[in-house]
Amino acid sequence: MIKANKLAYEYIRRDEEGNVEGIIRALDGVDLEIKKGDFVAILGHNGSGKSTIAKEINAILEPTEGTLFVNGLDVSDESKIWDVRQSAGMVFQNPDNQIVASLVEEDVAFGPENLGVPSPEIKQRVAYALEKVGMEDHRGSSPNALSGGQKQRVAIAGILAMKPKCIVLDEPTAMLDPGGRREVIKTLHELNKKEGITILLITHYMDEVTGADRVIVMDDGKIVMQGTPREIFSKVDEVKSHHLDVPQVTELAYELNKRGFRFPPGVLTKEEFINALLG
């Protein structure tokens, strides 16, 4: 679905007069393969390069070096930009910046309309997309009347209506309350399991990645750790060395192990913790 080979991205930093101050290498030789139907989470502190990857996948940025293929399409090929964006839809952090229409269903229809999909099919797609994110009852509402979590689900529906193979989400829950966060993460897992859509979730919240098939940790433009959530969070010190946290339950088991307990490494869920303690 997504294949990067020695992918690099550099940008030039300029001062106020436009003189070159330096070159920043935001991505530095990233090799990455994401298979169809995977749920992959990317973690990394601000400036680690994780958002740059998302923008490359969406052909917003063109690779400086290396190659990147999305659904078999080369993102550097300008004639394919729209095909790339249709294959890998993108959801951003701020729900308010992504809403373009005054009614929910019009907002969701915006993408397929731009793709030139015939009207009867647009209707079908909008109904399908709103149902998949659990927002069918709000189709005639104004997006302004929705909560943050609902707005993000509408944004996801807008992408779904374009029938993408993959959805890339750049910190979609950063501005949401706990209820909104739960809604969005649950929706993503359902789309992944039931519709087979490949999900690439970029986040700062460690508890959102425990359900992913694979976790990628980025630092300094490189992939520094990669594995299942359990593999990643069993290395608490290494995760923390990249300025990240571990989920609270993992942290608790780690803390108790320092006090002589013997929890297996990488305890992720409350159930696992309880079984390990009582079992």
Partner: peptide, 16 residues
Amino acid sequence: EIGLAAPDVTYLTAML
């Protein structure tokens, strides 16, 4: 029920 949550360790200790 009102769209909030408690810290994860609160749920864990309640379950225990």
